[in-house]
């Protein structure tokens, strides 16, 4: 008979958007599901659950990653920044403001991933022109087709930082 037992939960500690969060997770829980279902941080989106769309992009220790392919247990001790953690004291992050200014979204579902990815891109400092922004943002699909506006928004945030 197939083994039907659910693996035991493992305690982990995370710092999410500057706040310490302790939780217990079954090893199969992804960081994405932990954020959305356990920590009620639903700003991070699930668009494919397979690393194919970028909607789940968050920053782990400052680097952009796909949280859907990251097991929560493996991030024990990490600092995680999600879209909810980008605005400081009610003031929007320059990328957030730029996305509004340039109408860089329509339905808004890819947007948190786009913005977190763009924050990672700015930190990496590898994009110097529009083509490089396009290439390095190609891991974030936008079915509404806001790409040119996304590039313009990132250029705005880049020129102001």
């Amino acid at each position: 008979m197939a083994d039907l037992t659910i693996p035991e939960r493992i305690p982990i500690n995370l710092v999410v958007n500057g706040e310490r969060r302790a939780l217990e997770v079954v090893p199969w829980t992804t960081l994405l599901d932990a954020l959305r279902d356990r920590l009620e941080l639903t700003g991070t989106k699930k668009g494919c659950d397979h690393g194919q769309c970028g909607a789940c992009t968050v920053l782990i220790d400052g680097r952009r990653v796909n949280s859907c392919l990251t097991l929560a247990v493996m991030t024990d001790g990490a600092e995680i920044t999600t879209i909810e953690g980008l605005a400081r004291d009610g003031a929007l992050h320059p990328l957030q403001q730029a996305f509004i200014d340039h109408d860089a979204f329509q339905c808004g579902y890819c947007t948190p991933g786009q913005i977190c990815s763009a924050a990672g891109l700015l930190a990496e400092g590898r994009a110097r022109d529009a083509d490089e922004i396009r290439e390095l943002m190609s891991g974030n699909l936008c079915r509404c087709g806001a790409y040119p506006n996304i590039v313009a928004a990132i250029e705005q945030a880049m020129s102001r930082s």
């Binding site: 991070t44 909810e84 929007l92 509004i100 109408d103 808004g108 948190p112």
Partner: peptide
């Protein structure tokens, strides 16, 4: 600009 823009860029939507 979209009136729901803030909700969408902050993850509140």
């Amino acid at each position: 600009s979209r009136v729901d823009g803030r909700a969408k860029v902050t993850g509140a939507a």
